[in-house]
Simulated scan of single mutants.
Amino acid sequence: MDFALASPLGGLLGWPINAMIDSQVTFGGLWMRCHRVLLIVPGIVWGLLLHCAPVSLAQERPTILAGHGTLSGSILPLWVGAEAKLFERHGLQVKPIYLPRAAGRPALLSDDIQIYFSAGPPLVQMRLGGADVVVTSCVVHKLTSKIMVTPAIQKVADLRGKVLAVANPGSASDFAAKLFLARQGMKPGQDISLIYSGSTSAAFAALVNGRVQAIFATSPNDLQAAQAGFKPLLELGDLNIPYAGNCSAAMRPYMTKQPARMRSFVAGITEAIAYIRRRPSEAKGILQKYTRVSDPSILQHAYDSDTRYMEPVPRPTSEGTKTILENLGVSGRTAEQFVTEFNNDEFIKQITDEGLLKQIYPSGVPALR
């Protein structure tokens, strides 16, 4: 049974004796550890002697700056991890920073950011260029996007002689276009014209004004194109081409120096994926905040499109990295060695061994939607 503390302080705050003994209480903004001697006469509490020593406040959580180069649903796990304070559950603060037009790569190299959340191709190119970049998670394991075309184009062969727009050299859309065309036996500049528009929104504008006849689109540009009278020619996700998408990368020296922070970041991203699946309304609210899209139909489309291929466990895969290397002309033993040095799944293994996956997926790891 709990008793009210029989003292002026106890009467004021209404603390029970049992809760006071060997406990920590907050008073005057400081944590106080209280050691007390309690003298009890039958039925009467005579007094309480308190000896209190201040205990230092918890140290501020370390902070990671995480850059990303697009404002789309592909970044949702990073945004959700920050907004829902999932990183903080693992003792880390993460601040997402929008760095457009490939500004994330030099920022990562100069340590202005500690994590770059990006599609795989730019990260692979950084590594091939000599940067000691390591990928610790990849949310998407297959190539995804839609080819949106003018109504006159009925089949893939009709793309010959047409103009196709992608965002920037080395971008995810550039990689997807070149890989797809190569597998269809088409060469840019010979069978089809490939132009760089500068952004996905600019590519969509070029399609609308008739400068191009096809674009590689992701949400919400694919929906906007459909509403403008254009049609999807192909959904690349249906082809099951291995890929490394929505990856988190760090410089190896930072990863080696701060393994606890890297583990916390990967844990937060993994929890964010489960949160997105479990709480779609909250996830769409966060998506709206960062993309500033308020149309419910567009938000729903973006949510559906970007979660369709979102892996429950964001483990980097050798197959996805090899697809990117293949498109860049790297294969064989060189590719194998590259994958060994580039992909790092130690933190995924660590959180698995710690039981995090069982906590967030108590019924077992789900399949893709």
Rank of each mutant, 00 (worst) to 15 (best):
I17M: 10
A19Y: 08
M20L: 15
M20N: 03
I21T: 11
I21P: 01
D22F: 05
D22S: 10
S23C: 08
S23G: 14
S23F: 01
T26G: 05
L30G: 01
W31T: 15
W31H: 09
W31C: 04
W31I: 08
R33N: 13
R33C: 06
C34A: 15
H35N: 12
H35P: 02
R36K: 07
L38Q: 12
L39V: 15
L39G: 12
V41C: 05
V41E: 14
G43P: 05
G43W: 05
V45H: 08
W46Q: 14
W46R: 14
G47E: 09
L50H: 12
A53Y: 12
P54D: 06
V55C: 01
S56N: 07
S56I: 03
S56T: 10
S56W: 02
A58I: 03
A58Y: 03
A58Q: 14
Q59F: 00
R61D: 08
L65R: 15
L65W: 10
A66Y: 02
G67Y: 02
H68S: 06
H68I: 00
H68E: 11
G69M: 06
G69C: 08
T70G: 04
L71M: 14
S72Y: 04
G73L: 05
G73V: 04
S74P: 03
I75C: 08
I75S: 11
L78E: 05
L78A: 07
V80D: 01
V80C: 07
A82L: 02
A82Q: 10
L86W: 01
F87S: 00
E88P: 00
H90E: 15
H90G: 04
V94M: 07
P96M: 04
A103C: 11
G104C: 13
G104N: 08
P106F: 11
P106C: 13
A107Y: 05
L108M: 05
L108P: 02
L109R: 13
L109V: 15
L109P: 01
D111G: 09
I113H: 02
I115S: 02
Y116N: 09
Y116W: 08
F117T: 00
F117D: 00
